[in-house]
Design a protein around this nucleic acid. Structure first.
Lengths: 231, 231, 231, 231
DNA sequence: AATGAATGAGATTTCATTCAT
DNA sequence: CATGAATGAAATCTCATTCAT
């Protein structure tokens, strides 16, 4: 499946080319090894937490051995941090694709909320890892360089939407961008992160498609009502 | 050597008193011992999670020994469940004190939201334990008798408020009580449970008094705007 | 051998006395367990060094398991420190038995040197452990409370001998007590600690009885000649 | 990619020059690589001991990789032996420069002691390595060809001084040359090798310049007093 | 009712060394 | 000659739990 996806890459016909072939089935491919470990680790940490995760369990589901895990990531905690870094990097990449500045304030706000909702709804691992980090007082994410201040992008987006909405007489002027971000996050995060206790308490699974659609609409509605200027 | 050093402590001479004397200053007080263990365990589990908590750490901060912990609670998991049970029992007692049925719909809704906000803001241990339970797929809380259906009370309260609000022409009629409860919970829970990553990301501590007050007002406002009937 | 050394301790004749019998063959005897571990560890650390020693090797030659080693001493390093503490404690105890203040200066000095010689000659473990500590920059012994300033006793002894010798017109007056202690230590320590390379280089084993006696006399002689007042 | 990037580096075009050109700026210089490894290894082994030293640590501070270390020295122990060999070779070269036979017995003896003192005082690595060897029962140094019998030179020197001193009526006649060498070594070696525990015990660093000078004089004095003929 | 001592099983980590290029 | 990646074996240490009194 993975192999041969690039038909353009010619076979060397027995005459070895001097340069290394990047797509060849190499025995040593550190990048792939690292990625493989990271992917498995993401699942394990997300499922079991930092202390609950077992290095052996991660290694077992990997193409390599436990030893390589230490070779590349130094320690269990180092691996956990690498997972955090990757996961936070992923969401940032996606956020860039959202061009709300091209939409009018109301539609832009709706798009932002829907994106946030969908992201959390789909990326349960992300939600769980953030939860786990909070159990640990965020002390690991603090050491992740790419984290500090990374949410500035979202805040800028929100500030842009708010100021354009205010200028257009659509939005109220007393809303703080970070507070609003917290509100949107809360609404999108909680129903995913706490869906188990919620399900047990009310016999309702928030991830059921019908409920999901309703929640999505409800949250968009709530946010728009909150920012809307009343006359 | 240690035994019998206090001659003042009367021996029962084989004539055991039939009933336990709850008020006597006894050397051994099982109920107090259990309570002591539970209190310490609540802190430890809340701070470290189920897997992160250490039985030794709990025992050390206790007035008794590790052995007693097993004597009364059977296992680490048993103790954890007992903690969940206690914590959920505590919150139920509080909820009874809220008599929103006596208030008009808007004021009642405001009171409910403020109560929910304040409760989460103060009971961090509760928030953390719920978070932890969700990491474990709520499998322990499912076995806690006092949990299942315990939130019915809140739902009834909300239903009462909603129907009275609709009847008075103040509230919209398309809001589901459980969905609304989820919304309120989300807004109150997230800022407490995820305050560490939030603080790291934005350099703002949501538990700071000034921010707390602003959040409280904002959440009340958002909920009221959401349920209000628009003309 | 150890048992029954205290005939005064009466046998309970089958009638169990209420108090614990300190000499009974108990299954749980923490002090003995600790002592046992310490003894074995002393040999292993002395023979292999701190890094060379194996926790498993120590545990194997013990009456208990590896686990107990951690139970009582926390870590390999903790055990190593306990060994240092014990070994330094032993020599101090012996030093107290030396009452050189009762001897005239020359005989006192001779007694001190002979004691130092004999001690190093017999306690090879001590010599090796000191050597090992120096490989590690003495960083472990620094944390041993009973160590710092413990050699003050010897210095006082030397100072007493020197001043009495000076007063009697026998000793020169320009000798520093600590320097002299270093000189005596050097002469007694080196031939034990470095006997292997010495033996390899010269085909002579300094621990051979004949050589030992000659060295002892030589060192006493050298020290006395050094302190003696010349006319 | 890396290869051939420096066109200035002439390819030998298959015509291999027979002899190695020691002065050419070569890309690969085995001798220099070996020397580099040896230098780093000397420091590491001297600082950490044989078991304490880490192959990775050595390789890291080297200009080459860990693989080369095995390529040239076979194993960790092989490298350690090579270090011993080098260090003992260095000292031999120095000893030749000492021409005490041209000095009168007393001045010659003084020169010898001062040389020994200065050498140990400066060559801490040497002192440490000897110490380390003794921890290992001198079993590695035994396999070093250049070691066995290498100290004969010193003994000859001492014998020459002693016999000339006796002939001149200055020295006593009952001193064994090897014993005297041991004495001098003890006095010069111990204060360097055990300076850490000594420093911790007495709060005095024997390598401090002032103390060093005093020790030097003291040791010369002690040795001369020891060999001097008394009337 | 209470306890200090003990422990087996398993967790994380380290190390000298070799492989494939 | 040179190298980065890889590794098996063994090391240190931790954990929830039980024993003997």
């Amino acid at each position: 499946m993975k192999k041969g996806s690039k038909a353009a890459e010619p076979d060397t016909n027995g005459i070895a080319s001097g340069a290394p072939r990047p797509d060849a089935r190499r025995k040593y491919d550190p990048e792939q090894t690292k990625r493989n470990i990271l992917d498995v680790a993401t699942q394990e940490f997300s499922a079991m937490g930092l202390t609950g995760a077992r290095v052996d369990a991660i290694a077992e589901r990997t193409n390599t051995t436990k030893r390589m895990l230490y070779y590349y990531f130094g320690s269990k905690e180092g691996l956990y941090q690498a997972v955090l870094e990757k996961v936070y990097g992923d969401i940032r990449a996606l956020e860039q694709d959202l061009h709300v500045s091209e939409l009018d304030p109301v539609e832009g706000m709706r798009a932002l909320v829907e994106f946030t909702f969908d992201y959390h709804d789909r990326q349960r691992d992300f939600v769980r890892l953030v939860t786990i980090e909070n159990i640990h007082g965020a002390k690991y994410v603090e050491q992740v360089k790419s984290f500090k201040g990374r949410n500035v992008t979202v805040i800028h987006t929100i500030e842009d939407l708010l100021s354009r909405g205010i200028a257009a007489g659509l939005f109220r002027s007393d809303v703080d961008a970070i507070d609003l971000h917290l509100m949107i996050s809360s609404l999108c995060f909680h129903r995913v992160g706490n869906r188990h206790t919620f399900g047990t308490a009310f016999g309702r699974d928030p991830s059921h498609p019908r409920l999901r659609a309703r929640h999505r609409a409800m949250i968009v509605d709530a946010v728009l009502r909150f920012v809307r200027k009343e006359d």
